[in-house]
């Protein structure tokens, strides 16, 4: 059924990672990405990988989910791995056949890049696993708020994103209902040529559009009734607040970052 599609990948929980301020989480994720690219030796990367794994453990997200997030990018990992393996020509030659050459430098870079990409994906998906989409947009709004000075409509963009996210499940449910209703009248969506199938979507899309417009109008009216007039002077019920926890998180990330730099200098 169409309802089974998961939107976003928020995995509710009460771990320290979940309870962190989403703004701090976003910034630390950015720091983490920088950390992965600063590391230029295998040892530095091992520190980065350790950071990823430890963070994952703290968040208490099932390991199964970690592998799930890796699945879609597996082809990219293999592709870059193969490219690096065959096209880097420096270092000791391990293997040579016609135009294919495998060198020590090639193997090193291939492994290095693969580990880096894997860490990158796991680390960033940790952010979306532990932060609800609404918290995420809230945090983005606050982080981007300096851009208001140059007349970027940050609040409006964030509000649009929040509304869009809020209505995705509603729209899915609506689509499901309309599909069932048209199927009950004998609509056939599973067989026939591509053209025929595209045409079969009309009885679903038209009512869906009509109801979306109706919903949008109703929502606009409801917001106006509650005196919504944009972000100017608007306060929040749920304030984002930094706690000691965020301090620890910053300290923890900084410690790993320092390790990476130290490894870079020493080795």
């Amino acid at each position: 059924m169409i309802k089974d599609i998961t939107i976003g990948q928020y995995f509710p929980g009460i771990s320290p990672v979940h309870r962190m301020d989403p703004r701090v989480k976003i910034i630390l994720t950015a720091v983490f990405i920088v950390m992965l690219f600063v590391a230029d030796s295998i040892w530095g990367l091992i520190v980065g990988a350790a950071f990823t794994l430890v963070s994952f453990m703290i968040s208490r997200i099932p390991l199964k989910l970690m592998f799930k997030s890796l699945k879609p990018i597996l082809p990219i990992i293999i592709f870059t791995g193969v490219l690096n393996l065959f096209f880097i020509k420096s270092g000791d030659v391990y293997f040579h056949w016609k135009i294919f050459t495998i060198t020590s430098e090639g193997v090193r870079t291939a492994i290095f890049m693969a580990v880096r990409i894997i860490c990158l994906i796991i680390g960033t998906s940790l952010l979306t696993y532990t932060t609800s989409p609404i918290d995420l947009t809230d945090a983005i709004e606050r982080l981007l708020s300096p851009l208001k000075k140059i007349k970027v409509p940050v609040h409006e963009l964030a509000m649009m994103m929040t509304i869009a996210l809020r209505f995705i499940p509603t729209l899915i449910e609506e689509t499901d209902k309309i599909m069932s209703a048209q199927k009950a009248r004998g609509a056939d969506m599973e067989t026939g040529s591509l053209m025929k199938r595209a045409k079969a979507l009309i009885p679903i899309l038209v009512p869906l559009f009509v109801s979306s417009f109706r919903r949008a109008e109703e929502l606009a009216l409801a917001m106006e009734c509650r005196c919504y007039h944009g972000g100017e002077g608007r306060t929040r019920m749920k304030q984002l607040r930094m706690t000691v926890l965020d301090g620890y998180a910053c300290f923890y990330t900084a410690a790993f970052f320092a390790c990476v730099i130290a490894v870079n200098i020493l080795i």
Binding site: K177, I178, S180, Q182, V206, P207
Partner: peptide, 10 residues
């Protein structure tokens, strides 16, 4: 006939 069937007219 579903509930609120008028929303399926197209």
């Amino acid at each position: 006939v579903f509930q609120y069937p008028e929303y399926q007219l197209f």
